[in-house]
């Protein structure tokens, strides 16, 4: 909408053998598909480009590369420079059920070679997919074996390549994509710093910043007791819960899943209080706070007041537009300011 906004384009290649599940995971993460809907997807022909706006200033340029042998050969020969130049991230998907694992790895290593040639600074993430098809007690072992074997074929990327076991049927998919996104966000450090400051001010036990449309976590801050939370996979779980809820809302209200966003959600119990609210144009903030009504109300107001600062980070080097200024002031009606003060005193 604004041409002066300097956007960071990041090229992300999604590759892997035909039928490995590349388009399925793309549809689930970015296009609000439900896991069982992906059956309807056909084979990807050549490359499907999609541009995904993430956090305002980050534009993901996702290349979903069809995995049939003919296409792959084409990528490696005629289109070599076109496909492999200026790549930020390569995501390579292996099918755990594949009968020709050795052949898959050979194809992988020729792609790695092309990548090393044109974008030596790219990051490589390997997803070992469809883990749900393996018996649960064998999963970890099989995953490690495969990962070792693939790492050995990763040449110059061997020390940095990261492995994830994924499945579209549980939150493991979100775990992997959260890591990938974290790597791509240019100012993750400064967002994290600001978030930590905010957490101190509002006395939150935990703050989770996540992107609105994909429900992927951007970053989180955990304080004090919450560090002992026995659910170490809670961030992915929350992504997955929110995504499911979004779909259910969309179905009921008849609005497209992409825009079925809630303005706010609160849960108050005797053990914790939790709310999710909008932070910037593209992000929501989930906060878990101690079970106290004052802290809760003060936190809500303080987070509203902190929005402009995050909005600045969101758009990096752009002067703050007037709309956001108006927004900042609207939250400062006398009553609310009073409430905020009362909250601190209480």
């Amino acid at each position: 909408m604004n041409t002066t906004k300097r956007q960071k384009q990041r090229k992300v290649l999604l590759m892997g053998k035909s039928g490995a599940g590349k388009s399925s995971m793309r549809s689930i993460v970015f296009s609000n598909y439900v896991a069982k809907d992906v059956r309807r997807l056909g084979a990807t022909i050549d490359v499907e480009h999609s541009n995904i706006k993430f956090m305002g200033n980050l534009m993901l340029n996702l290349w979903d590369c069809g995995g049939q042998d003919g296409f792959v050969e084409n990528y490696l020969t005629h289109q070599r420079a076109h496909v492999f130049s200026s790549v930020a991230v390569l995501i390579f998907v292996f099918d755990i059920e594949s009968r020709e694992f050795a052949a898959d790895v050979i194809s992988y290593s020729s792609i790695i070679r092309a990548l090393a040639e044109h974008s030596p600074s790219a990051a490589v993430f390997v997803l070992i997919h469809k883990m749900d098809l393996v018996q649960s007690r064998l999963r970890q072992q099989l995953f490690e074996e495969r990962a070792e074997y693939i790492r050995a074929a990763s040449e110059s990327f061997a020390p940095t390549v990261e492995f994830f076991a994924t499945s579209i049927w549980d939150q493991s998919l979100y775990k992997a994509w959260t890591q990938i996104i974290y790597f791509l966000i240019p100012n993750a450090r400064s967002i994290e710093g600001l978030l930590r400051e905010l957490a101190e001010v509002v006395e939150a036990r935990e703050l989770i910043l996540y992107e609105r449309t994909t429900c992927l976590m951007v970053t989180h801050v955990t304080r004090d007791v919450e560090a002992d939370n026995p659910f170490s996979d809670r961030f992915e779980r929350i992504s997955s819960i929110l995504k499911t809820h979004k779909q259910s809302m969309a179905k009921h209200t008849g609005i497209p899943a992409g825009s079925a966003n809630f303005a706010e959600m609160q849960i108050k119990t005797g053990r914790f209080m939790f709310f999710i609210t909008r932070l910037t144009e593209n992000t929501n903030l989930a906060a878990s706070i101690p079970p106290s009504e004052q802290v809760f109300n003060a936190a809500r107001i303080n987070i509203t007041l902190a929005r402009p600062r995050f909005a600045e980070l969101d758009v990096a080097s752009k002067p703050r537009p007037a709309v956001q200024q108006a927004f900042a002031h609207s939250a400062e009606t006398p009553a609310e300011r009073e409430a905020a003060v009362a909250g601190f005193e209480g």
Partner: peptide
């Protein structure tokens, strides 16, 4: 701590 004895929750939607 003045937490609720009974859990309560609400969701406000953006569009509707």
């Amino acid at each position: 701590e003045t937490g609720n004895n009974d859990a309560e929750s609400l969701i406000t939607m953006e569009r509707k």
